[in-house]
């Protein structure tokens, strides 16, 4: 079983595997794989803890009720699955600063944290604005040939390329 401990699998094996998982969710759950509504629901759950039940009356939370459901559990599964994979290949954990970042901006966790946080906020807004993320639109939507998803997938990468080029080719 040494292949389970390999650090890296062929991207084609991984991609085909994810494609097969999409068949499984359509068959067993009548749902496409997605990730970003889990964050909306979790955010609503946290806001409810801080501000009480009134939060549930927000229009968006009536549409995406802040509760643990299928997609929420899928995201929990992703955390655990990646943990198992990293453990089997003995990868180092507890890192703040990725190598590419450190090579251009140094090893300070603070700067990396600030940029990641700002990026996360933009991503949280953008994912819900577009109605999906790289999973829900980028994979599950494009494979259904949904017009919204092909448009969104192009926008995800266009925006991502512009920002990455700005950070690493202009600032870096």
């Amino acid at each position: 079983m040494h292949w389970l401990a390999l650090g890296e699998w062929s991207p084609y094996v991984v991609g085909i595997g994810i494609g097969v998982l999409s068949w499984i969710t359509f068959i067993l759950s009548d749902k496409p794989i997605g990730c970003s509504t889990a964050f909306t629901r979790a955010s609503g759950m946290l806001e409810r803890l801080l501000r009480g039940r009134g939060v549930l009356n927000k229009e968006y939370y009536r549409q995406f009720v802040p509760e643990i459901e299928w997609e929420w559990m899928l995201v929990v599964g992703v955390v655990v699955g990646a943990f198992i994979s990293a453990r089997l290949s003995g990868e180092s954990t507890g890192r703040w600063v990725p190598d590419t970042w450190a090579a251009s901006f140094g090893a300070s966790p603070v700067l990396r944290w600030v940029v990641a946080l700002v990026g996360g906020v933009l991503m949280g807004v953008g994912a819900r604005w577009a109605g999906g993320c790289t999973s829900g639109h980028g994979i599950s939507g494009t494979l259904q040939l949904a017009a919204s998803s092909w448009l969104a997938a192009m926008g995800f990468f266009a925006g991502g390329i512009v920002m990455a080029m700005f950070i690493f080719r202009v600032l870096g």
């Binding site: 700002v118 991503m123 953008g126 995800f156 990468f157 925006g159």
Partner: peptide, 11 residues
């Protein structure tokens, strides 16, 4: 929305 997401993706 996807362009906002993309700027976040790159950061």
């Amino acid at each position: 929305g996807s362009l906002i997401f993309g700027l976040g993706f790159g950061s």
